[in-house]
């Protein structure tokens, strides 16, 4: 019974797991780069949710075929393309901030940065 749910909905379980890992990375890690990695995992887990929700079992790609066929829902994929662009830009801003912080403070450790900026 429980196993059935796990096997039927495993991608949703993976999405929640990834989200938790990303959240931990953002909060628990003291290194700024690791925080950024956590942030990316957090964002990408949501993309997995969207794409999983779009899936139709046995569905093909949403292109025009001669005979009628079952399609997966294309709209979430398009939304996630937009969201990926947003995530990449956020990561770029984050990394450039990290470079500036490293030049300014000489370290990426959050505790040391807090000490230095007193």
């Amino acid at each position: 019974m429980v196993l059935d749910i796990i096997f039927a909905k495993y991608n949703y379980i993976i999405y929640i797991t990834l989200m938790t890992i990303g959240f931990y990375g953002m909060i628990g890690k003291r290194n700024l780069i690791k925080k950024l990695i956590g942030m990316s995992i957090f964002q990408y887990s949501i993309f997995l949710f969207y794409v999983s929700a779009a899936d139709v079992s046995g569905g093909t790609a949403p292109i025009l075929l001669k005979e009628p066929a079952v399609y997966v829902n294309p709209l979430p994929h398009v939304l996630i393309l937009t969201a990926i662009v947003v995530a990449v830009s956020t990561l770029a801003v984050g990394l450039s901030l990290v470079i500036r912080i490293y030049k300014e403070f000489g370290t990426l450790d959050e505790d040391k940065i807090i000490e230095l900026s007193r």
Binding site: Q43, I46, A53
Partner: peptide, 27 residues
């Protein structure tokens, strides 16, 4: 300047969490 970098970084982390929650809610 110097101190605004860490302020901006913290804001970015918080802001991304918030935007991700909004995206998930919309989903």
């Amino acid at each position: 300047g110097r101190h605004s970098l860490t302020a901006s970084f913290n804001y970015m982390i918080m802001g991304t969490v918030s935007a991700s929650f909004i995206l998930l809610g919309i989903g």
